[in-house]
């Protein structure tokens, strides 16, 4: 990244968390093998992270997704959509996202790093891989 552009003081980024499909995290233990206290600590960290971003004026949205679902596509006019599910074991699977509004790509990376360090098994940071994706914004008025 490291784009050289003038203008846009603030930009939105999507921090994307995967159930499946991301490279393995450093502390790679499935959540159902954690102790209840470790799960509590993890949830508290995530909530605290979102609260801090709200206080710093950088939080936009955050949601979690259920792992189930199906592919859907149109099958032509007058016919019901076709579904294909459950998902194959190999499908990249999104677990949830957070949308942030920050000053720079560097700040987005810094925040993703913090989120990735949420505590997991043994109370140690998970160090999971998160996807960071810039939003396409609106066009500037002055381009000449």
């Amino acid at each position: 990244m490291g784009r050289t552009d003038e203008g846009d003081p603030m930009a939105k980024y999507l921090l994307l968390k995967h159930y499946r499909g991301a490279p393995s995290s450093v502390n790679d233990v499935p959540m159902d093998r954690w102790t209840p206290e470790e799960i509590d600590a993890h949830v508290a960290y995530m909530q605290g992270f979102a609260t801090r971003l709200g206080e710093s004026g950088e939080y936009v949205d955050g949601q979690a997704l259920a792992p189930e679902g199906a592919w859907v596509r149109s099958d032509g006019e007058g016919r019901p959509p076709v579904t294909d599910g459950p998902f194959a074991e190999t499908k990249d699977l999104i677990a949830g996202w957070m949308v942030i509004d920050v000053d720079s790509w560097e700040r987005a990376v810094e925040l993703a790093g913090e989120l990735s360090a949420a505590p997991g098994a043994g109370g140690k940071p998970i160090h999971e891989w998160l996807e960071v994706r810039p939003f396409l914004g609106a066009p500037p008025t002055v381009t000449e």
Binding site: M10, K12, G54, G57, Y59, D61, D101
Partner: peptide, 15 residues
């Protein structure tokens, strides 16, 4: 105007 929640914008201004 900047497509963020009102609470976030309020915090940005307070800070």
């Amino acid at each position: 105007a900047y497509l963020v929640p009102e609470a976030t914008m309020a915090q940005r201004i307070s800070r």
